[in-house]
Design a protein around this nucleic acid. Structure first.
Lengths: 155, 155
DNA sequence: CTTGTTTGGTCCGATATCGAATTATATAGT
DNA sequence: ACTATATAATTCGATATCGGACCAAACAAG
């Protein structure tokens, strides 16, 4: 009996599908929201990388960044290239491994990220009126757990 | 006192940012997972549209589809064009409004979507071992609420 | 030390995405 | 009815994304 209770296999699949569908749409919405507050030409992946460098640590390699965001390394090369050309990061060879490069955020990069966070303040405040912080805090552990599990399956 | 309790403004923003960051990564992971089971050349947006036509109803217009997934209409034109060329949908003029067109799924389209769902069965089952259905069911209403609220703000 | 394999990164070509401008139809205001 | 505005969709150009091929350094095995 691999189907012990009243929930059919198809219904189970449908629930997971709805989950990922909702997540996909929210990702899309939040992306649009953020990009409306970023300078022209700077998009979500740029901001995400800058923020990662600030939050986690400076000097991550391209591969570390790519796996942190679960994107192909070619995409990360392109994203970092754009940030470098715009002067928001510098890229330096890794003395510990000559194959790899380390990405450092510049003060311009920090300014950009901080400015975006500030610009988003009112949007967050407005959202918090309808979807309060407690609900976010309740969801976060669940999402983190799901992310970790999925990460592990396709490491 | 717009800052009544112990949680600072910055910390509040950080929580929402982490929320959207997790959601973005999960969206990315689920996309990769799905596309691994789809025929070459068919990607998430294609599948999403087919599924929407099945779940919600046949004959939606391009704008309805675009707003359902919160993507620009130009992107939806492109996506539906690909589906049409591949024979998974047909597009017909809308008799009620000559500006718009209605998208209908073909039997090939239904077959494709059903096949993908079947192919994903084992993946879902495996995921369900580590992240069981109850947790999904607990999260879904929260995500739907958040999606609805964000939808409303940027309708 | 050599050879085979793995790993970090880039380059290239194909497709996806999206904003701006355009066309055609619909709707509103007078 | 007539003009103004709004809406559905497409086209076009610019950029993003990604898979495959490639190169160079690291590492493993003999």
């Amino acid at each position: 009996m691999t189907q012990p209770d009243t929930t059919s296999q198809a219904e189970v699949g449908a629930a997971y599908f709805r989950l990922f569908n909702e997540i996909g749409i929210i990702a899309q919405l939040s992306r649009t929201l953020l990009e409306a507050r970023l300078p022209k030409g700077i998009i979500l992946p740029h901001f995400s990388v800058l923020n990662h460098l600030i939050r986690v640590r400076d000097g991550r390699t391209l591969m570390e960044l790519a796996s942190a965001f679960q994107v192909p390394k070619t995409s990360m090369t392109h994203t970092v290239g754009g940030l470098e050309k715009a002067g928001f990061v510098t890229v330096q060879p890794n003395p510990a491994d000559k194959r790899s490069k380390c990405v450092f955020i510049t003060s311009e990069g920090r300014t950009l990220a901080a400015g975006a966070v500030t610009a988003l303040g009112p949007d967050v405040a407005e959202l918090a009126q309808d979807f309060p912080l407690e609900r976010v805090q309740a969801m976060l552990p669940q999402l983190e757990a799901l992310r970790t599990i999925m990460d592990a399956k396709r490491g």
